[in-house]
Write a protein that binds this DNA or RNA. Structure first.
Length: 592
RNA sequence: GCCCCCGUAGCUCAGUCGGAUAGAGCAACGGUUUCCUAAACCGGAGGUCGGAGGUUCGAAUCCUCCCGGGGGCGCCA
């Protein structure tokens, strides 16, 4: 069950009845920040006090009295200026947890109105290595796919590849002039990158060369068989390299609809924009100007749509066709939304793209509203990965960090630490499981480090800290999971499908229970706000509450109901750690 | 020129719809192992929430201005 939603409804209904109000008031239920205030607090009495011209504590009194009668509530007190502090009944709490333990969804109820959501993430360019810039989109995007699914939505993960556009003209003429067939066979991306660099340099110096690149691009876009075959080869070989990285990261896509998939729609898109008066020609280019736009005058625009203030102040246009007739990614993005709405029947389209592109998406979404599209459009933006110096992460010699190298480094550091720990006899990883364990821990560490902070802010990438395995880090959480599994193995008990009645009594049992009960609420809040860091927060709390519990409460040596309770709590902690990590795209190990 | 984001402990970061004494981790300091994994646990210390006004019963959170840092904005994606 979703406890917070349940309690909030309960509190609001109780307030209405106890105070004899005509309307349902807002209960303003919050978790307490200190256990001495109980588990939850109702703050609504203070908000009501002014309107009802009464002292907040006089309102809080009857609310507390009525709340205390409910079976879920052990204690309800008025405190401070008018808080109503609620302490959950331990027996009731235990019954809810036992039910969650026997529930395949672990108490994460499905949303009432499931939606079809397209998550647009990762989206690397063809003919280029994936680099740090793709790290966050790939990791956050994959987590969101899991999160939306966990709360009952239908999700389509779409890799919107950069597989079309100007660079292909350069690649075609470049391969002809500088290309090495053998190298292309061996390591396609490295060869394509090398050729692209040479070609783009030459194009800047040699106008005839640049012209032939444009001509080849035009031929490609016109369907020329020879160029199309070359392009297909570039795409296919690049994709192999990409698949290897995704396999390593455990990321999968339902669709790989790159920019090329929308090519045929582009002239029509521009034509429609011109017809409706959304775009106009300016200096040879087709532009959408927002500063002098009146959405009310656009036929078919979303009823009552008002342009964001920020766009009204933006004098620079949103360009949908260049003066040379070529289309841009803005045009492709418009076509993509139309495709997702009309062909895929999506209710929402979510873009996991860095914060610097915020303006582009604001403009894109505005154009879609002007076209009358009402589907949900959301830019899930995130900050940059910075180096030690606080500037965008680069290698020592100033180059972009390749994603593969970053992952290799993380695994290397992990291997050193794991081997040292094994030598000291601290870990129980078998020799033959070492490679797999290093990969699971190392990749998990990278993902945790990325997901644990609020995605909005930039963060400093620190491999030492990430792999140090102390405190709030992925390996710590994985380790606590392994301890749960080890407990069951030690006791000769079946972990999978384990169920038991739960009746917490010991302080550490109750402490763990009051963390575990929040899981469903946390998953929903994370999905609603597209905030995987909330899952990290919760899992870290579960892991540390479990570790505290484990230190204070002997499990296998206890007996009767106490043993049942402790095993039940341990099993549920294990389930939440495993499921929660899965939502982050992080795998677990049974033994560490 | 216009716009957006960020500023919280020595460091890295949380902080939900405005709630009580602003929280974690790391580092540093002190302690815990005949006991189911010590990659663990326990304890103390560490703060003018960039600054100044304002709104509010109540502000790190909302509004205005200022300072500092980062980023974006006509023909790349």
């Amino acid at each position: 069950m979703l406890l917070e939603r349940y309690l909030d409804d309960l509190a609001a209904a109780t307030m209405q009845e106890a105070l004899g109000l005509e309307e349902r008031p807002r209960a303003l239920l919050r978790t307490t920040q200190d256990p001495k205030f109980g588990d939850y607090q109702i703050n609504g009495a203070m908000a009501l006090a002014k309107r009802l011209k009464k002292a907040p504590r006089d309102l809080a009194g009857p609310i507390a009295e009525a709340m205390a009668k409910h079976e879920a509530i052990a204690k309800a007190d008025v405190a401070g200026p008018g808080f109503v502090n609620l302490t959950l009944d331990a027996g009731w709490l235990g019954r809810q947890l036992a039910a969650a333990l026997g529930d395949a969804r672990l108490g994460v109820d499905a949303v009432e109105a499931p939606e079809k959501i397209v998550v647009d993430f990762s989206s690397p360019n063809i003919a280029k290595q994936m680099h740090v810039g793709h790290l966050r989109s790939t990791i956050i995007g994959w987590s969101l796919v899991q999160l939306y699914r966990a709360v009952g939505h239908e999700v389509i993960g779409d890799n919107h590849l950069g597989d079309w556009g100007t660079q292909f003209g350069l690649l075609i003429v470049g391969m002809r002039e500088f290309g090495d067939e053998g190298a292309l066979e061996k390591d396609a991306i490295a060869e394509l990158e090398r050729v692209y660099k040479l070609a783009s340099k030459k194009a800047k110096e040699d106008e005839a060369f640049a012209e032939s690149a444009r001509a080849e691009l035009a031929k490609l876009q016109g369907g020329d068989p020879e160029n199309t075959a070359l392009w297909e080869r570039f795409v296919a070989t690049t994709r192999q390299t990409l698949e290897a990285i995704y396999a390593r990261l455990g990321v999968r896509f339902d669709e790989w609809l790159g920019e090329s998939a929308y090519d045929a729609m582009l002239p029509g898109v521009v034509e429609t924009l011109l017809e409706k008066g959304i775009a106009r020609e300016d200096q040879g280019a087709i532009c959408v100007f927002f500063h002098d736009m009146d959405p009310g005058a656009i036929e078919g625009a979303v009823e009552g749509y008002a342009l964001p203030k920020r766009l009204r102040k933006q004098k620079q246009p949103f360009i949908v066709r260049k003066k040379d007739g070529a289309f841009l990614y803005s045009t492709t993005d418009i076509a993509t939304v139309l495709h997702r709405k009309e062909e895929m029947g999506a209710d929402r389209s979510v873009y996991v793209v860095g914060a610097p592109q915020a303006l582009h998406f604001e403009q894109l979404f505005a154009v879609m509203r002007l076209l009358g599209v009402e589907m949900g459009l959301e830019h899930v933006s995130f900050g940059s990965v910075l180096g030690e110096d606080g500037k965008p992460l680069k290698t020592r010699d100033g180059k972009t960090v390749k994603l593969k190298d970053l992952l290799d480094e993380a695994e290397q550091k992990t291997r050193e630490i794991v081997e040292a720990s094994r030598a000291e006899g601290k870990l129980r990883i078998a020799e033959e499981d070492l490679d797999e364990a290093v990969a699971t821990i190392g990749i998990g560490a990278v993902k945790w480090a990325d997901l644990m902070q609020n995605r909005a802010t930039d963060y400093k990438y620190d491999p030492e800290k990430m792999c140090s395995f102390k405190g709030n880090a992925g390996p710590y959480v994985q380790y606590q999971y392994a301890r749960v599994r080890s407990l069951f193995a030690e006791g000769g008990l079946e972990y999978e499908g384990f169920e038991a009645p739960i009746a917490p009594e010991h302080e550490a049992e109750v402490g763990l229970a009051r963390v575990l009960i929040r899981f469903g609420d946390v998953v929903h809040r994370a999905a609603e706000g597209s905030l995987p860091n909330l899952i990290c927060d919760h899992l870290y709390e579960v892991a540390s509450a479990y570790s505290r519990f484990y230190t204070q409460c002997p499990v296998l040596k206890s007996e009767g109901e106490t043993r049942e309770t402790r095993l039940g709590l341990a099993a549920l902690a294990g389930r939440q750690l495993e499921k929660g990590l899965e939502l982050l795209g992080i795998e677990v190990l049974e033994r560490m």
